[in-house]
């Protein structure tokens, strides 16, 4: 079997699984949608964190920002936002399907664009920071945005916003948002697969390996870093918008900017699967999500301690991740050539 046929079969299987899963397990549609979101989280974190070597702790910023932009668009199209949030749920919005879908589509689009703009602005600020300052700086930006939204009355402050109710059958609603999540994650994957094959992927890796050298060679490092972050922001914004509608109610600390849950899951999933690889984040996300969903309820009260311990163990003992480990073990399969006697220079003599 040729390589492309194998790859084709693999993608076909995934596609069938993706479509079939919610039909087979209709009770778990939400969890399955969440799985796609996790995959998207891991993939987008890996752009800067793995491929570029800029470890961010604040990517969740775009998730929350996208969520709020979308929610405000949906509400603001037909109501006064201030009055709506002030009533804190007392105003029941009744949208016709046309109104609802106009709002949803426009909201998602604006969330994506808004997050790109946000990434460009914050990129200016945070990409001057290197190494640990970058990680702490991004963490600070994410925490600060949660705090600021939490005190901003116009958007509902800590009380949050209820989203417009889906005009129709709950099962159809679940399937719609499942589909959107699956589409967003698949889109991200295919986009990144293409992206890493271009010069862009090489430039990101060059920045990771030696940024000073990259600068000395005239690479537009700031441009690459900003665009990389904007790409993360774009997809995170979309999925944030979708997730907001999926839960139906958003508030800053737990839903929109969950820095210490989703924000950390992103990092952990990538480390688990192997950073700087295309499939690593996907594998890490699937594994992490399944293990988490299965064990979480049995660990009542202890789940966060387990999570923390998992981070420590992962970071100390298994930082290369599953795919990274496989690449070390079978480099030939990854198209890497390792010359076992490389250090002795024989070619050099020529």
């Amino acid at each position: 079997m040729s390589k492309s046929v194998k790859a084709g079969l693999l993608y076909a299987c995934i596609l069938i699984l993706g479509i079939g899963a919610p039909l087979l397990f209709p009770d778990y549609t939400f969890q399955l949608a969440l799985l796609w979101i996790m995959i998207l989280f891991a993939l987008t974190w890996d752009i800067a964190g793995g491929q570029m070597g800029y470890n961010s702790l604040g990517n969740i910023l775009f998730f929350g920002a996208g969520m709020y932009i979308c929610a405000l668009t949906q509400v603001g199209l037909y109501y006064d936002i201030g009055a709506y949030t002030a009533a804190s749920g007392a105003i029941k919005v009744d949208y016709t399907p046309q109104q609802y879908f106009t709002g949803l589509i426009l909201g998602i689009a604006l969330a994506a664009v808004g997050c790109v703009v946000l990434a460009a602005i914050f990129g200016r600020i945070v990409f001057g920071l290197r190494g640990p300052y970058f990680a702490i700086g991004t963490l600070g930006v994410a925490l600060a945005s949660a705090e600021l939204i939490g005190t901003w009355g116009y958007v509902g402050a800590g009380g949050g916003i209820s989203l417009p109710v889906y005009p129709g059958d709950p099962d159809a609603r679940a399937m719609l948002f499942y589909g959107l999540c699956a589409l967003a994650a698949t889109g991200t994957f295919l986009f990144l697969r293409w992206l890493y094959g271009t010069s862009f992927g090489l430039a990101l890796n060059a920045i990771r390996d030696d940024e000073e050298k990259a600068e000395a060679m005239g690479i537009h490092t700031t441009r690459y870093k900003t665009v990389a972050w904007a790409i993360s922001g774009f997809f995170l914004g979309i999925v944030g918008a979708v997730f907001g509608n999926m839960t139906g109610f958003i508030e800053p600390l737990e839903v929109a900017f969950p820095t210490t849950t989703f924000g950390i899951f992103m990092v952990l999933m990538v480390l688990l699967g192997g950073k700087g690889t295309l499939w690593g984040p996907v594998i890490g996300a699937v594994l992490f999500h399944i293990v988490k969903e299965v064990t979480w309820t049995y660990l009542l009260g202890w789940q966060w301690i387990t999570l923390g311990a998992l981070i420590i163990v992962n970071v100390i003992f298994f930082q290369q991740g599953i795919v990274g480990w496989m690449r070390e073990k079978w480099p030939e399969r990854f198209g890497l050539v390792v010359d076992r006697r490389a250090t002795i220079s024989s070619q050099e003599e020529s």
Binding site: G131, P132, I311
Partner: peptide, 22 residues
């Protein structure tokens, strides 16, 4: 590398906060 220590201590921070909570 620096991110390793940052993340490891962050993991420890989660463990500590949650343990104290319990």
């Amino acid at each position: 590398d620096l991110f390793t220590s940052l993340l490891a201590t962050f993991g420890l921070a989660i463990v500590m906060a949650q343990s104290m909570n319990l």
